[in-house]
Design a protein around this nucleic acid. Structure first.
Lengths: 230, 230
DNA sequence: CGGTACATTGACTGTCATCAAGCTACGTGG
DNA sequence: CCACGTAGCTTGATGACAGTCAATGTACCG
């Protein structure tokens, strides 16, 4: 079923059907915990996420810390020359990606204006999203940050699931993302549950009971642009 | 003296000297506090900063908060379609920018591969830099954040000034950037001075006495890529 | 000379990180 | 099937730290 699912990047080629593009793009199934860099090699690469969730780890400093998430439909590019200090892109869950090597991508972007516009657009959108995240994690109250995180993740899933979704991240990793200790994350999640805003059917499963109320606690509204670039 | 100073974007045109580029680029002097958007109009735009410092304000929510800074040599692009919720780019100090309207830029990027590579590169680098900032402001200790801020700003200035530089930002705005109250910023700056790591010749002037020591307090090393995109 | 914006300093309170101890779920191997 | 180990989660106690409120101080501008 995955083999025929088009990714954003590939979809932008339908009208033209460039041969070099189809040759360049390779579909990969990524194991949980596997780094995309290990698949792509040391060179720069660019990928479109079909299914699963990826995380961006800042590899500088020990231990490495997660600084961002990538959801299906987003594009993730890793230009090794522009980011020498290093971020690694790792699969949080088993994921399916559409991977392109750097040289292939350059050739294609030369010839296809639509692709490079998509890439640039994706980069801008990811940047805007990252800046919104900065607003979240610069808030003093842990409650607001956790609520904002939940609202953000919930926004990635269709509402048809009865507003129930999987967090995919451990408490510790959520803490890294929000600048909180894992204990504080756990406490705040349960506090939101006690407040009746969410329910916790499982350890990593969350059901939204009061979406707007949760948004009010978060103190902001989220929009999710389609792009994501590391 | 400013009129002839080349910006990164313009410099990438020297070999080709495209006419349409020279026509599209306009040099502007921006007053302190003035928004670039007011100059460029409602459309998307792209600018290269020659002198001065700009700040990126997240205009969503009241009051607007500063989420990033732009230093000379960086490119700042504002794609209005990709960022509908809104960030405004405002001059912190009097600045000189090289401004391009969106339509002109699109034409130029179609014809000049170097320019679009520069833009994409700039976007990636700014994204990487923003993610490093997230690492800074997610740190629990205010001391580390303030130290990191000082190291970062200091890195923008040549070391020949005896390591003395102007902060350009008020305590309050530094606090917004770091997710701290203005009082905490003030206290931490003075604490760093008492610790002998910096000196404070003036209210907004800082002299680095122990650069590596400050970096140690900050807990990380900074590199400054040349790109910046809003 | 007064006004405004910014900065400093102090006192106090609330919150969060830290340490520590159990607890749950899950996978492995006996 | 169960014992066991590990990783993740929860919960509690405590102290440090940063936010808040408040007052004063300082530069800069007209």
């Amino acid at each position: 079923m995955f083999e025929n699912m088009p990714c954003d990047l590939c979809a932008s080629f339908q009208p033209e059907n460039g041969d070099e593009w189809r040759d360049a793009a390779r579909r990969y199934a990524v194991r949980r915990g596997q780094a995309i860099g290990d698949i792509a090699g040391t060179d720069s690469w660019c990928a479109s996420l079909a299914t699963g969730i990826l995380r961006i780890d800042a590899s500088q400093g020990a231990p490495p810390r997660t600084v961002g998430l990538i959801f299906p439909g987003q594009i993730v590019a890793h230009p090794s020359d522009a980011d020498p200090c290093g971020t690694a892109v790792v699969a949080v869950t088993r994921s399916d990606i559409c991977l392109h090597a750097r040289d292939d991508l350059r050739q294609v972007t030369e010839r296809h204006p639509g692709v490079r516009r998509l890439l640039l657009r994706s980069a801008f959108q990811t940047l805007a999203e990252t800046r919104r995240w900065m607003l979240v994690i610069s808030r003093p109250r842990a409650r607001e940050r956790v609520a904002a995180f939940l609202v953000s993740v919930a926004g990635r899933f269709p509402t048809s699931d009865h507003d129930t979704f999987d967090l995919a991240l451990s408490r510790g990793r959520i803490g890294e993302l929000l600048g909180l200790s894992l204990e504080t994350v756990s406490r705040q999640i349960h506090a939101l549950a006690k407040a009746g805003l969410i329910a916790l059917p499982g350890r990593r499963h969350v059901k939204l009971l009061n979406r707007s109320g949760l948004g009010a606690v978060a103190g902001m509204t989220f929009r999710h642009p389609s792009g994501a670039v590391a």
